[in-house]
């Protein structure tokens, strides 16, 4: 599948923003945070800013952005519609939650309820994003059971890394506030490794023989394409990365996005002062690069059944 930058940016940025909202809700629930105006303003600005930037970028890749509101109507059947509805609904409790945190400097009572609603809706939104892809039978590898958990885990990992780093500007984050984030980053990459393992070993769902129904005669190969040039389907679905390049990129993603952040945030938990901040920034940067690579690969490695008509052997 063609890895469109707008979609990669949308899924990673909004994922991080929603993940951060989940962590903020958990902080409020645990009650071990002192809500304050300036730090609250910065953290909510980052999370809601990323969400909004991601949503806007996803509408810019539409053929008719001015009709984007129509996408909220088909939640009965469409995961894309459900995602849109969940994204819009999340703004409601999130703004109330932010109001309590920033203006009233409180995360208890009604503010806490708004916070919990925010956290739940944020999780629902990330899961819906994952389901958009996981529900597409035409791209068999995306229907893997790990797809939605991976989306959730990376949203929480990037959101957690952002929260720790931005909170650290105002107050040093205690070690017990950092370890859960280290754990989630490790879990996210473990899930991604599992996804890669499963898609590498998956049996083909459809073949050139089943696509044409000519398998009873013998193996089917494309003799002549419909035209000498390309078409929309070939450009959109035909993007294919060489296996050896994919293997290298997976390693880079795992090292830069997995090993570096785990070590850096673990070190941050043991440090104080500027060194701690530097470790956090290093971990956050590595994670962001790793997640962008991981998301790019998610699209670039995916094979679409329609390519069976254009010479692919099996998907």
């Amino acid at each position: 599948m063609h890895p469109a930058y707008s979609v990669i940016f949308f899924t990673t940025a909004s994922g991080a923003g929603y993940g951060m909202l989940v962590w903020l809700a958990m902080l409020a629930l645990a009650g071990n945070v002192v809500p304050a105006m300036v730090s609250g303003l910065v953290m909510f600005a980052i999370s809601l800013g990323l969400i909004t930037a991601g949503l806007l970028s996803s509408t810019f890749h539409l053929g008719h952005p001015e009709r984007a509101w129509r996408a909220l109507s088909q939640w009965r059947s469409s995961w894309l519609s459900r995602e849109g509805v969940a994204a819009v609904i999340t703004y409601g409790p999130a703004l109330v939650f932010a109001l309590g945190w920033i203006i009233f400097e409180s995360t208890s009572g009604l503010w806490l309820i708004a916070g919990l609603a925010t956290g739940v809706m944020a999780l629902v939104t990330i899961a819906s994003t994952g389901m958009i892809y996981a529900s597409l039978k035409a791209i068999p590898r995306w229907t893997d059971v790990t797809v939605v958990p991976v989306y959730l885990a990376f949203g929480l990992a990037t959101g957690g890394a952002l929260l720790v780093t931005s909170y650290n500007i105002f107050t040093p984050v205690p070690p017990h506030g950092i370890w859960p984030v280290v754990l989630v980053i490790a879990v996210a990459w473990a899930l991604k490794l599992l996804y890669w393992r499963r898609i590498d070993n998956a049996k083909p769902v459809a073949t050139a023989e089943s696509a044409t129904g000519l398998g009873h005669i013998g193996p089917v190969t494309l003799f002549e394409a419909p035209h000498t040039g390309e078409n929309y389907i070939m450009r959109e679905m035909g993007f294919q990365i060489a296996r050896k390049h994919a293997a290298k990129l997976r390693m880079i993603a795992l090292l830069v996005g997995g090993a570096v952040p785990v070590v850096a945030f673990a070190a941050a938990a043991l440090m104080t002062g500027p060194a701690m901040m530097i470790a956090c920034l290093l971990g956050l940067t590595g994670l962001c690069i790793g997640v962008l690579l991981e998301r790019w690969l998610f699209f670039a490695e995916a094979q679409h059944a329609a390519m069976l008509y254009y010479g692919a052997k099996a998907v």
Binding site: M1, H61, L62, G63, H64, P65, R67, A68, R70, A71, S78, L80, I132, L136, K137, A138, I139, A206, N231, Y232, I233, E236, M237, H304, A305, A306, M307, Y309, Y310
Partner: peptide, 21 residues
């Protein structure tokens, strides 16, 4: 009412839908 999100073309295993840029 089509917004041109192209998701339908991703969902079709037969490559039957084509986007008009």
């Amino acid at each position: 009412t089509c917004i041109g999100c192209k998701l339908c073309s991703w969902a079709c295993p037969y490559g039957a839908r084509e986007y008009d840029h």
